[in-house]
């Protein structure tokens, strides 16, 4: 009886897999397939590469933060990139935060503290849109989780500012990007070789900066990944032992009935 049952299960599984494959093909028509990158946080033991995150934060700070906010991040969160408490304080103090009202009833600016949310470049979405050709740059603190393909997509996008193919009409005020849906993106190519000078001497090529800023943004959208992976391994070991013990116990108890 087992072989035929197994055969049926296999048949159903194969059918489901087939459907899945068809679906993936039909999704891939418009933009080219995303090249798969190697990320330090891939796989069940993956963790964020702190050096890459620090470089990525530098890219964000010096380039992307001119247009994109990271509104779910606080300065204190940056400790996770490997900065000391004093370094975090110093980074925070380079920005101005709004506080108040004071005794005179006035809001005022002061250097940011670690407990402040990282301020964005624009007071509101309308201001962000009008400064960027009518499209507000999206908040970046969840961008990696909010796109199909996640880090591979954002990486491909940052490297995807190629010349438009012959005959393709780029809308005025927009830029051609191979990986952006419909290819007309309102973001000017943000990266160029040597645009930042990395403190650790890493050469600032476009792919390098893209890789680092994506690592930083991946952390920004999923700051608990390291803990999740670490705890997950323990939970798995615990459950595997449990499966073994309960299976042995089940065999023993049922031996009398079979």
């Amino acid at each position: 009886m087992w072989p035929t049952r197994l055969a049926k299960l296999v048949a159903v599984a194969a059918g489901a897999l087939g459907l899945l494959l068809i679906q993936q093909q039909s999704q891939a028509q418009e933009t080219p397939p995303l090249p798969q990158q190697q990320w330090s946080f891939d796989g069940i033991f993956g963790t964020y590469d702190k050096a890459a995150m620090q470089r990525g934060f530098q890219v964000y700070k010096q380039i992307c933060s001119a247009c994109h906010a990271v509104k779910h991040l606080y300065f204190r969160d940056l400790a996770a990139l490997g900065y000391t408490e004093d370094q975090v304080k110093a980074i925070a103090a380079t920005d101005q935060c709004t506080d108040g009202p004071n005794d005179q009833g006035q809001m005022y600016q002061r250097p940011c503290r670690p407990s402040d949310p990282i301020p964005g470049p624009f007071p509101n979405d309308k201001a962000a849109a009008v400064a960027n050709g009518g499209v507000a740059p999206p908040d970046q603190s969840l961008i990696v989780k909010a796109r199909d393909g996640g880090p591979d997509y954002v990486y491909a996008l940052l490297n995807g500012f190629t010349p438009a193919p012959k005959g393709f009409q780029v809308v005025s005020g927009k830029y051609y990007n191979e990986y952006f849906p419909a290819h007309n993106i309102s973001m000017p190519p943000p990266l160029s070789d040597g645009a930042v000078a990395f403190a650790d001497g890493t050469k600032a090529t476009v792919p390098q900066m893209a890789h680092d800023v994506v690592t930083f943004l991946a952390w920004a959208s999923e700051p608990n990944l390291d803990a999740r992976h670490r705890i997950g391994v323990r939970v798995f070991l615990f459950l595997i032992v449990g499966v073994g013990i309960f299976y042995a116990a089940k065999r023993k108890i049922w031996a009398a009935v079979h």
Binding site: H229, G232, V235, G242, K250
Partner: peptide
Amino acid sequence: YYTIKDLFGLCVFLLIYAFFVFY
């Protein structure tokens, strides 16, 4: 008989569930 069988099944199920939650 079925308490132990259910416990065993639960553990296997939790493995699958944990896979999704953690990975």
